[in-house]
C-alpha cells in the first residue's frame, strides 16, 4: 500500500505550472494542482490536468525508429544516433549549416534545451533553433 504525490512541473508549455502526480502502488492515478505554488496558485489548464495521459499510452515511442526500405523499424540508440550524426554532417558539408533547423521540445528539461541550443550554435553553427513552448 503505497500512496505518493510527486511534485513536478507541467511539461506542456513555458508557464511552469506546478503540480503533483498522484500514484498508488506506482501507478499514476491522477494529478493535483500545487496549491502552495506562487506561479500557478493551485490552477491548471486542460493540458496540465491531463499531463500524465501519454505515460502509459500505447502510441508512445519507447525506442528510436528508422525508415528502412520505406518502413519504420525499431533500431538501437547507437544506430539511430550515428545515422543522425552522419546525415547532419553530410548536409552541413554540402549545403552549409544554415540549411539545418532545430525544433526543441517542452517535454525536455531546461538543461536539455540549453544543450540543444549549444549544439545548434556551437556544434552545427546555425541560429535556426526554436521551441514549441514559445508562448
Amino acid at each position: 500500500m503505497e500512496y505518493q504525490n510527486t511534485l513536478t512541473t507541467c511539461i506542456y508549455c513555458g508557464c511552469g505550472c506546478s503540480m503533483y502526480v498522484e500514484t498508488i502502488d506506482g501507478r499514476i492515478t491522477g494529478v493535483w494542482p500545487d496549491k502552495t505554488n506562487q506561479i500557478s496558485g493551485g490552477r491548471l489548464c486542460i493540458k496540465g490536468w491531463n499531463v500524465t495521459g501519454f505515460v502509459g499510452h500505447p502510441d508512445r515511442l519507447k525506442n528510436p525508429l528508422l525508415r528502412k526500405e520505406g518502413k519504420l523499424v525499431e533500431v538501437t540508440w547507437d544506430e539511430a544516433l550515428s545515422q543522425v550524426a552522419e546525415k547532419l554532417s553530410g548536409i552541413k558539408r554540402e549545403s552549409g549549416a544554415d540549411s539545418i533547423g532545430l525544433m526543441t521540445s517542452a517535454k525536455c528539461t531546461n538543461e536539455e534545451n540549453y544543450l540543444m541550443n549549444k549544439f545548434a550554435r556551437a556544434v552545427l553553427g546555425t541560429n535556426n533553433i526554436d521551441h514549441c513552448a514559445r508562448l
Partner: peptide, 12 residues
C-alpha cells in the same frame, strides 16, 4: 509538507 510544497499524503 515536503520539498517546499504541501500535498495529500498517506501517513503510515
Amino acid at each position: 509538507r515536503r520539498n517546499g510544497g504541501v500535498a495529500p499524503h498517506l501517513f503510515q
